[in-house]
């Protein structure tokens, strides 16, 4: 295969043709729609380091057998040599015809590993001892058995929110003896969504109320008081419980219970001051998640759009997606 690849290199415009017919020569090859079948044009084989060591030992055995004029040893050497050389076909056959049908995934927060569910099919043959690897990622071993239908789980590290292009995946095998490595690159044209990461801690959101009303309303300690907690940067100064703070080393703020528990939260991009864009997204993400966990309704106001008020997984996903895709 590599031989024919090199032959087509000779004409002047050979390189383009070469890459057209042997796309996997390029590591960062063009992405392609799924499903992808690994055919002979895209499978490459080279001996491994161990394979080279084995070849040297075979050579030593050959010279020994010839030197001692020992035909039984020579026959054994040729048999072992032929067997190990034939294992090349085994490696090739292990990859050939393997199909990557689809990739299933669940969004994760940036910084976590996103788990790709690779739906692979082995056209009836068991394929043992495969592994998948990508340039930034880890190596995952797997086998494709004819009777098993589970996806191959492959974890990919994420760094930033937004759409993540699935990188080129290197699927390789050293089956059966580890003497040859057959590999193929697959670059699926697919993207997965990475949610923004939520900030660790910060102030609670305000409930949706009329802003004017809210501003004039005095903070009634007896009505809404629900407890005290340590001051966190960003808490409004008027919430600080000065009397209690005086007795402690750290200032504390009053926790207020909303008068109507069902009243939706308003998570407003413009209501957050003093933070840069990414920090705002992180805070809004935390609020969205907290609201979801608390089973509350919430409304997300972003510069370009407003979502809700609503609740439930679909709303959560819509909000997180909108946050993830903010420019």
């Amino acid at each position: 295969m590599i031989g024919s690849a090199l032959r087509s290199l000779t004409p002047a415009n050979g390189l383009r043709r070469l890459l057209k017919h042997h796309p996997s020569l390029l590591l960062r090859r063009q992405s392609e729609p799924l499903p992808v079948t690994l055919d002979r044009r895209r499978i490459y084989i080279l001996p491994t380091g161990f394979g080279l060591v084995f070849a040297v030992i075979l050579l030593v055995m050959l010279i020994g057998a010839l030197n001692y004029n020992n035909n039984a040893a020579l026959l054994l050497t040729t048999l072992l040599g032929a067997t190990t050389a034939q294992s090349m076909y085994g490696a090739f056959r292990n990859l050939k015809g393997l199909r990557l049908l689809s990739i299933r995934t669940q969004p994760v927060e940036a910084g976590q590993h996103i788990v790709l569910g690779l739906h692979l099919q082995g056209s009836g043959r068991a394929r043992i001892g495969l592994s998948v690897r990508s340039v930034p990622g880890l190596t995952q071993n797997f086998s494709v058995l004819p009777e098993a239908h589970d996806d191959i789980k492959y974890a990919l590290p994420t760094e930033r929110r937004g759409w993540l292009d699935i990188p080129a995946l290197n699927i390789e095998t050293r089956w059966p003896f580890g003497l040859f490595r057959a590999w193929s690159w697959v670059h699926p044209a697919a993207q997965v969504l990475v949610y923004p990461c939520a900030e660790r801690a910060g102030p609670d959101p305000d409930p949706i109320t009329d802003e004017a009303d809210n501003a004039q309303k005095p903070l009634d300690e007896d009505d809404d008081f629900a407890g005290l907690r340590d001051y966190r940067p960003g808490d409004p100064p008027r919430r600080i419980a000065w009397k209690s703070s005086a007795k402690r080393e750290q200032p504390v703020v009053r926790l207020l219970l909303s008068r109507d528990e069902k009243q939706p939260w308003r998570l407003d991009w413009h209501a957050i001051h003093g933070l840069d864009k990414e920090m705002r997204i992180m805070r809004l993400t935390r609020w969205v998640r907290e609201a979801d966990v608390a089973g509350r309704q919430w409304e997300l106001r972003l510069p370009e759009q407003t979502l809700g008020p609503d609740q439930g997984p679909a709303h959560l996903h819509a909000c997180l997606q909108a946050l993830a895709l903010l420019p």
């Binding site: 010839l66 026959l75 040729t78 032929a82 067997t83 050389a85 034939q86 059966p176």
Partner: peptide, 18 residues
């Protein structure tokens, strides 16, 4: 694989110069 290699091995056995 050993069985499948027998023809290959025999050929090499016959042709390898002594």
């Amino acid at each position: 694989l050993l069985l499948a290699s027998i023809p290959f091995a025999l050929l090499a056995f016959v042709l390898i110069p002594r």
